Structure formats: structure tokens, C-alpha cells
Deep mutational scan, measured.
Amino acid sequence: MIINNLKLIREKKKISQSELAALLESSRQTINGIEKNKYNPSLQLALKIAYYLNTPLEDIFQWQ
């Protein structure tokens, strides 16, 4: 199971779900699903999230 700190990191950087979704060329619903652990992002999307949040991938997503 993958757990994530996306919501915590996103809020700390003062970025809304909609703003992050626009940067990622994704939907706000996708970001919401990832944050609620209802959806696991593809590797490509996970890497883009890490890039746009300027945060190491392993700080956002962790195996448990």
C-alpha cells in the first residue's frame, strides 16, 4: 500500500488542488483521489508532482 503526504506538503506550499492539477495537466478530482488514497498515481504523474512541489518523491509517497 502506498501512503502519501501530498495534502500536507501541498498545503504547506500554499498550493490549491486546482492549481496543482493545472500544473500537472490533470484534474482536481485526480489530486483529491490521490490525497485520499483512493487513487495511486502513475510513475509519470508521481514524478511530475514531486517536480512541481520541489520535493523528493520519497517524501511524498511511501510504501507501507
Results as ranks from 00 to 15, higher is better:
residue 1 M to L: 15
residue 1 M to Q: 05
residue 2 I to S: 08
residue 2 I to Q: 07
residue 2 I to V: 13
residue 3 I to C: 13
residue 4 N to S: 01
residue 5 N to D: 04
residue 6 L to D: 03
residue 6 L to I: 03
residue 7 K to S: 08
residue 7 K to D: 04
residue 7 K to H: 08
residue 8 L to K: 15
residue 8 L to W: 08
residue 8 L to R: 14
residue 8 L to Q: 15
residue 8 L to H: 14
residue 9 I to N: 02
residue 9 I to E: 04
residue 10 R to P: 04
residue 10 R to A: 04
residue 10 R to Q: 03
residue 11 E to S: 08
residue 11 E to F: 06
residue 12 K to N: 11
residue 12 K to Q: 14
residue 13 K to C: 14
residue 14 K to S: 10
residue 15 I to L: 13
residue 15 I to K: 04
residue 15 I to A: 02
residue 15 I to Q: 02
residue 16 S to L: 06
residue 16 S to I: 05
residue 16 S to G: 07
residue 16 S to V: 03
residue 17 Q to C: 05
residue 18 S to A: 13
residue 19 E to V: 11
residue 19 E to F: 10
residue 19 E to Y: 11
residue 20 L to D: 00
residue 21 A to I: 04
residue 21 A to F: 02
residue 21 A to K: 02
residue 21 A to H: 02
residue 21 A to C: 04
residue 22 A to M: 12
residue 22 A to D: 12
residue 23 L to P: 01
residue 23 L to W: 13
residue 23 L to N: 07
residue 23 L to G: 09
residue 24 L to G: 00
residue 24 L to E: 00
residue 25 E to W: 07
residue 26 S to L: 15
residue 26 S to M: 15
residue 27 S to E: 08
residue 27 S to G: 06
residue 28 R to L: 14
residue 29 Q to R: 14
residue 29 Q to V: 10
residue 30 T to L: 15
residue 30 T to G: 04
residue 31 I to E: 01
residue 31 I to Q: 02
residue 31 I to P: 01
residue 31 I to S: 01
residue 31 I to Y: 01
residue 32 N to S: 13
residue 34 I to N: 02
residue 34 I to V: 04
residue 34 I to K: 01
residue 34 I to S: 02
residue 36 K to Y: 07
residue 36 K to D: 13
residue 36 K to H: 13
residue 36 K to W: 07
residue 36 K to Q: 14
residue 37 N to I: 03
residue 37 N to W: 09
residue 38 K to E: 14
residue 38 K to R: 13
residue 38 K to T: 13
residue 38 K to M: 14
residue 39 Y to K: 11
residue 39 Y to M: 12
residue 40 N to Y: 13
residue 41 P to H: 02
residue 41 P to F: 04
residue 41 P to M: 06
residue 41 P to D: 02
residue 41 P to Y: 03
residue 42 S to G: 10
residue 43 L to F: 13
residue 44 Q to V: 11
residue 44 Q to H: 13
residue 44 Q to E: 15
residue 44 Q to G: 12
residue 45 L to R: 01
residue 45 L to V: 06
residue 45 L to T: 05
residue 45 L to D: 04
residue 45 L to Y: 06
residue 45 L to A: 03
residue 46 A to G: 07
residue 47 L to I: 13
residue 47 L to V: 12
residue 47 L to F: 07
residue 48 K to C: 09
residue 49 I to M: 05
residue 49 I to D: 00
residue 50 A to M: 03
residue 50 A to P: 00
residue 50 A to T: 03
residue 50 A to F: 04
residue 50 A to D: 02
residue 51 Y to H: 12
residue 51 Y to Q: 10
residue 52 Y to T: 11
residue 52 Y to P: 00
residue 53 L to N: 00
residue 53 L to F: 08
residue 53 L to W: 02
residue 53 L to G: 01
residue 53 L to P: 00
residue 53 L to D: 01
residue 53 L to Q: 00
residue 54 N to H: 09
residue 55 T to N: 01
residue 56 P to L: 06
residue 56 P to C: 08
residue 57 L to D: 00
residue 58 E to D: 13
residue 59 D to V: 08
residue 59 D to A: 11
residue 59 D to N: 09
residue 60 I to N: 00
residue 60 I to Y: 02
residue 61 F to E: 00
residue 61 F to D: 00
residue 61 F to M: 02
residue 61 F to Y: 01
residue 62 Q to G: 09
residue 62 Q to S: 08
residue 62 Q to P: 08
residue 63 W to T: 04
residue 63 W to P: 03
residue 63 W to H: 03
residue 64 Q to P: 14
